[in-house]
Design a protein around this nucleic acid. Structure first.
Length: 585
DNA sequence: GCTTAGGTTTCG
């Protein structure tokens, strides 16, 4: 770790870095991520820099204070970190009190502030080196008129209205003055929760697209301001029934995470594309300059757009496209498992693979059980996730993910005692054994399979095994996996035409009961059970099965030969459907 | 209290 008054150290070219060294590093930014919240206590910036040696080096900068992170404006800026700690990966710049992560010199030919003669020479050389190559990636911005299915793109647009969909999704109604030629998904939300006009004139609606914004971006989307006043007299709410004709419709998704600089952000006012204003005049008919003037907030994203003065780089709302089909109503016919404690699963907190299917120990007699080939959703077509969950549910098998990054390494010769210790830091820790080159496995039945704070869980299932005494602290452990608890339930839905199995999982709460509570609290389990039974009365128990409005997203296989259609159901949609009051057919 | 993250897009 660095201290503010570390002694001056030598400037080293990026191609000559040695692990463990503490050196003075200069480089041209070739990639950067704005500070984001880490799982620890700090914000983290990530950047890659390069220099004349051609070497690209990664750098992480940690500090809880945003102002202590390097103020990088754009790719091509030059950063300098005195006393960088070199690791085998790259280098870390720990921004402790009194120091900043790195000094930044703008690209181009700006003044070199307060630099020593040597520093000025280095910056000048780096600038002329950087000027000679094309460091900026191509701008992925397209207009709505040019959007194609399954395309990733940036969108600069005006925000006309927004509405929360659920805790992890926000709907943004936007337009960019061009008309998307595809049939568009119609998203219906309660007009009471819409900020901005609840609906627009028919001609206007044809130009407006709905963008579904998820997770971390849903939070930032909620901060965006809609400046078009809500119409004083509300239009009648549109009929929320699903269309009877099934049509492929384009939908726009801004998924969670920041890969490829995904995000949503307000653009500075002076960057509004002129055509938007002009089209706005046409769109709203009679002189509407006022309206246009106040509805300027634009959407854009992250790295390049945040502070870049280069307008062409400022717009980037990545959206992911897929086809959606709309489906009619269905009834809940049954669900599995009927005993809720069997629905408790553990999943890896990093890669989100389910770690254990049934209660641990059920299938230990068959340690040859291999992870299903489709266990990692990032390595296999998404179609398989469905099958995988199904297999997990009805076959008894277990699986420990083998992503290196998912495993907490422990020192050689470590024991269960160390796993127990880790549970003081990580909430749920699973000790595993992994022989070199082999898939990681659980320890045998007599050892705890889960440390959860101060509690240990043995044997077959979370609920029944927590009272056994601690023992086997000397058992060897090679690594540990941090896991989370979720409730995973399969619902069988049915309408007049067919039945469909639907899985809900990986949510922090389940019918307002947290998965953590469900894992340890009988009362919480009973509450879930009662809800489920009210939705789906057991045979002979009487009571009406409610009709549910469902949003079924049909992902068409990209493989045209197979033309396999399969269904993935948005678990929040299903959950909303399951909790709705309407029971009319 | 001394970690966090370590680009490479999809649960929806």
């Amino acid at each position: 770790a660095q201290v503010p008054d570390a002694p001056p150290c030598t400037y080293v070219k990026l191609g000559e870095l040695k692990p463990g060294a503490v050196v003075n590093v200069y480089g041209v930014v070739v990639f950067f991520k704005q500070p984001f919240k880490s799982r620890g206590s700090d914000l983290c910036s990530f950047l890659k820099i390069s220099d004349q040696s051609g070497q690209k080096v990664s750098c992480n900068i940690f500090s809880a204070k945003p102002e202590r992170h390097p103020q990088i404006f754009q790719i091509g800026d030059i950063v300098n970190r005195k006393a960088a700690v070199i690791t085998t990966y790259g280098f870390s710049a720990l921004a402790f009190s009194g120091t900043v992560g790195a000094e930044v010199e703008p690209r181009g030919s700006g003044p070199t502030r307060r630099l020593s003669e040597e520093d000025r020479r280095i910056v000048t050389e780096l600038r002329s080196w950087a000027a000679g190559r094309d460091l900026l990636p191509p701008d992925p911005t397209v207009s709505l008129a040019r959007v194609q299915p399954r395309m990733y793109f940036n969108l600069a647009c005006q925000l006309l209205a927004k509405a929360p969909v659920d805790s992890r999704c926000t709907l943004l109604r936007v337009w960019d003055g061009t008309r998307c030629p595809h049939a568009l998904l119609n998203v219906t939300v309660d007009s009471d929760v819409v900020e901005g006009p609840p609906s627009f004139a028919e001609e206007q609606e044809k130009l407006i697209v709905n963008v579904l914004v998820y997770d971390d971006h849903a939070q930032s989307a909620q901060q965006l301001k809609v400046s078009i006043p809500t119409h004083p007299k509300k239009k009648k709410k549109k009929n929320a029934r699903w269309p009877t004709k099934t049509v492929d419709r384009l939908s726009f998704h801004l998924h969670g995470g920041t890969a490829y600089s995904r995000g949503v952000r307000r653009l500075p006012d002076d960057t509004a594309p002129l055509h938007l204003e002009e089209c706005g005049r046409q769109m709203f008919g009679h002189p509407s300059i006022e309206l246009i003037d106040v509805c300027c907030p634009l959407l854009a994203t992250t790295s390049f757009c945040l502070t870049s003065p280069d307008k062409s780089r400022m717009r980037s709302t990545h959206a992911h496209l897929s086809y959606l089909e709309e489906a009619p109503r269905a009834q809940l016919r049954s669900y599995e498992p009927r005993r809720l404690h069997r629905a408790l699963k553990l999943y890896c907190s990093k890669c989100t693979s389910i770690v254990f299917a049934e209660g641990y120990g059920v299938d230990l007699g068959a340690p040859s059980a291999r992870p299903p080939p489709c266990a990692h959703k990032d390595k296999q077509p998404f179609t398989h996730t469905h099958t995988y969950v199904f297999q997990l549910f009805f076959a008894v098998t277990f699986f420990v993910c083998d992503h290196a990054k998912c495993h907490l390494n422990v020192s050689p010769g470590s024991t269960l005692e160390e796993a127990r210790h880790l549970a003081g830091t990580y909430r749920n820790v699973v000790p595993v054994h992994s022989a070199p080159g082999c898939h990681p496995t659980l320890l045998d039945l007599s050892a705890p399979f889960l440390f959860r704070g101060k509690r240990r869980f043995y044997g077959s299932g979370l609920q029944t095994s927590q009272r056994q005494p601690p023992r086997h602290h000397n058992r060897l452990v090679t690594s540990c996996v941090c896991v989370c608890v979720c409730v995973c339930v399969c619902f069988r839905l049915q309408d007049a035409s067919d039945a469909l199995d639907v899985f809900l999982w990986r949510d922090e709460s389940f019918f307002d009961v947290s998965a953590d509570d469900a894992a340890t609290n009988q009362e919480a389990q009973d509450q879930i059970q009662r809800t489920m039974d009210s939705l789906c009365p057991p045979k002979g128990a009487g009571g009406e099965r409610p009709w549910l409005d469902l949003c079924l997203a049909a992902y068409r296989a990209t493989d045209v030969e197979s033309r396999q259609t399969f269904y993935q159901i948005c678990h929040t949609s299903v959950k909303n459907a399951l909790t709705q009051k309407d029971t009319s057919p």
